[in-house]
Amino acid sequence: MAQSQVHRRGPTSPQMNMTPLIDVTFQLIIFFMLVNNIISQDAVRMVIPKLDDANIRAIPEDNTIYVNLVLADPGEAERRAEGDYLNISGRISSIQLGPLERIPKHELARLTRSLRAMREANPRIRVLVRADAGMLFSEAVPVLGAIAEAEIQTVNLVAYRDRQTQR
């Protein structure tokens, strides 16, 4: 085969240096993977209360257990209008304790048992009650009662921390 004397292996094609692009892309992927894991840990989707002039404390990292009051109609959290977010049926169906344990609302004795076992294992545990802003107070009463039954006298109510709140 006849070959050029100048370019022995044919003309060189221009090559883009992909290394920095791949570096940045991998960083982004790692970031989004970590962020996804953090959020889906034990947060049930709901609109928690927005307060008038809230100056409330940050949630501590350790010794916390979330008690999520899960709405009976899970689509309700998505469907409601922006300005009228309290206008839902406000009934709950179950309680999610921590990231895993789902307790139906008529089995509150199980919630008491689990919380008592947690308190005995770690006396400094903080119970965080996370409920939808539109939930009826009557739905919270038995759950708060079950927490009190486990001899936990202090509960922490979760709300948004933004300063300029809207009603």
């Binding site: 708060l144 202090t154 922490n156």
Partner: peptide
């Protein structure tokens, strides 16, 4: 999110 501490 933040929290408020209540007594039962």
């Amino acid at each position: 999110e933040g929290l408020l501490t209540a007594q039962l």
